[in-house]
Amino acid sequence: MDTLVQIKNLNKIYESSDGNVIALNNINFDIHKNEFLTIIGSSGCGKSTILNILDGIDKDYNGKIILDKDIKIGYMLQEDALFEWLTVEENALLGLKILKKLNKETKNYTINLLDKYGLKDFKDKYPKSLSGGMRQRVALIRTLATKPDVLLMDEPFSALDYQTRLQVSDDVYRIIKEENTTVVMVSHDLAESISMSDRIIVLSKRPGKVKKIYTITLTNKSTPIENRKAKEFAYYYDALWKDLDKNV
């Protein structure tokens, strides 16, 4: 198994006027090629911080992030953050444009993704005419357009209502698998995590530590919605529930 990223002894301290807060305490794990890795934990345990550090937005940490060769990292945020004044196509090309990688080839690749994933007739429309699920797909394509080797997703479905959420997680999963992307997702939804992931990392409450790493093996693994019917599902759900620190 190829390891794309190694996280070694990662520590993060937030400084504030009422003293320092340890957000992450000695985090160690690897990201393997083509896997779907999910980090779960109660709110405030620092799971989003890990993604910010991996993406390079947050450079204020201790420890080592070892990237394999010069792999690229893409980041899909909690909200779609589409720009209302740009068309769907312009939104999808935004990342490429800012990274100054917009050329005929990358543009065609992006437009192909839009066509392939049901946005063909919406390319010239503005985001306000899209449903929540479609907006999320545009946001995903905007990130995939930059061809990341590792895709980070920070609770990508949290802004959606439950039914849309199920549908979109199926859509996104299908796109990710078809495009052979390695994923690190942050979530607090146990069922969603089990149904999508190959491995699940459980973080303890603040200061966040790696409490346990699960390898998820489901019989007849298919789409996230189907995976919920697997006989091992309940077992993992139960185990994760017991591991999760409750704040109540």
């Binding site: 390079g56 945020l77 953050a81 004044w85 800012i98």
Partner: peptide, 26 residues
Amino acid sequence: PPIKIKLMKTFNASNRDIFLKLVFPQ
């Protein structure tokens, strides 16, 4: 919206890009 600024940062946007492509049109 901070989330949009964060988005721009994930694409390594310069401050100039953040202003011209996001803050002003927004």
